[in-house]
Write a protein that binds this DNA or RNA. Sequence first.
RNA 1: GGUCCCGUAGCUCAGCUGGAUAGAGUACUCGCCUCCGAAGCGAGGGGUCACAGGUUCAAAUCCUGUCGGGACCA
Length: 581
Amino acid sequence: MNLFAEIRSLVNDSLQQMQAQGDLPDGLSFDAVTVEPPRDAAHGDMATNAAMVLAKPSRCKPRDIAQRLATLLSADPRLASVEVAGPGFLNLRLASTLWADVLRAILADPSGYGRATVGAGIKVHVEYVSANPTGPLHVGHTRGAVFGDALASMLDFAGYDVTREYYINDGGAQVDVLARSVYLRYLEAHGQEVAFEDGTYPGDYLIAVGQALKEKVGDSYLGKGEQFWLEDVREFSTLAMMELIREDLLALGVKMDVFYSEKSLYGTGLIEAAIEDLKSKGLIYQGVLEPPKGKKPEDWEPREQTLFRSTDHGDDVDRPVQKSDGSWTYFAPDIAYHYDKVQRGFDQLIDVFGADHGGYVKRMKAAVSALSNDKTSLDIKLTQLVKLFKNGAPFKMSKRAGTFVTLRDLVDQVGADATRFVMLTRKNDAPLDFDFDKVMEQTKENPVFYVQYAHARICSVMRKAQLAGVAVEDAVLQAADLAGLTDAAELTLAAKLAEFPRLIEIAARSNEPHRIAFYLYDLASEFHALWNKGNEHPELRFLQEGNLATSQAKIALIRATAVVISNGLGILGVQPAQEMR
RNA sequence: GGUCCCGUAGCUCAGCUGGAUAGAGUACUCGCCUCCGAAGCGAGGGGUCACAGGUUCAAAUCCUGUCGGGACCA
């Protein structure tokens, strides 16, 4: 049940009726008409801007339209009052029975409440993490992983057909470096002294891989040249790293549908096919790029190479796909990968990248636009840096000094739930401060705690109610007489619950899961307020001794609140707490 | 030099793809436990929404430019 959608369509119907009666001209678009909660609660439960939006195209005075619309709307039993206000707003007050309907709808189908249909029939592909398979995931990857995962879950909740995918960059020079590094560890496992020069990965996590390699191949690679072992060690090491990464993701609660290998693009003709597709559209040519503006780099010289005319699709300069020696640039496999996504029939693509990939956005969008003839949309979400703090002081990461914070460090220290929630309390494109101590704090300053505390309190009341002999099953609560819920704080809470489906739609449309985290904080706040109001007004306490019916009505309200918190947290991948410890 | 992101209360940040008197947290002042978890709640002060133009019934929100901060490319 989506109250806002219902009233929105009621407004729409009424507007059409006005057209039929000749009060409004034909051919008007109602797209700009909104029904939303007013900022000021004194203005009622909902407000619509219909009259103001339609005034100009219909050449009527806004207040006249508002007046006629108000007359039509007020005939509907769902609306208790309709008032024209200000320049032509219509302020709507809902019949009090509607709030009870919302609660009953929540209790009738708890796990389904808030699910939307905005994404029905739309196939969306979300690519995230996609870290190089050269080591464990670190803090930066964690943010991308959490964001992408929550985004995918949210889209799923909003009705989209979602595919979650990890692109394994196992085709570039970095996996050769990995192989050489593992080879050093292999020599070490054979008792040799080794030195890790620049351009190798000295991390301890490769010790076990070198050991495992020794167990697999014995001494057969000792004293041999690179041409003899590189390919096999590369394969072996990449697999080991992906195993490590999968475990990291699992610890964070991130699941992928597909792991897609870059290497699998080579030798299958896919890259050639993608470039051929662009060529057939006249977007591939031989040419020489202009030197970069500003300071000329020392080693720049004009070279003829194969270029993609990305400027035809919004890019700033054309991009090379093949170097003068015939080898592919790093961009070519990326094109091929997205070509493959388009071929797989997705309607929408979303790439979640770190902010350091900001430079690729325009060319990737150009590629997808060209490859799909603008039929497939590509949204690229960049996640900004995570700044770590300990005891309020910035905490510098350094691979060299070994103060390198991994995903595991985070999860081990603060838990997957807190890590995930905190990472979602900022917009993806804003930098994030992650304070180890604050995340663990049990105060309202810590949003994870605050939301969990609300849920735990509700569970606590439910436990107490059961001990007192009050039936609290959803089926029983649904049948309760909810007419007694009349206090302002109770109705505010119910109104907040009614907003949830609308919030999901808004958040899903803009690919912004952080909105859910903020909503949950607000919801928790309304709940805590109501709880405390019970201190001064005993009649607002949830358990009313000796009054079974009233208790059940109030418990229906907070049980519905717990359901929404639980659904919201579920999208973010966070377990709701039954009790605080 | 170019591209992208950001600039909102002392501090950290929301702000519904354009709506009414711009909101939370924190900090400061004051009040609330004989009571379902006070790990909480309520009240108060605090703003030129970086700046200047533009678009319109309406701009923190959209467009242009300037300044400041960050990320990246060369």
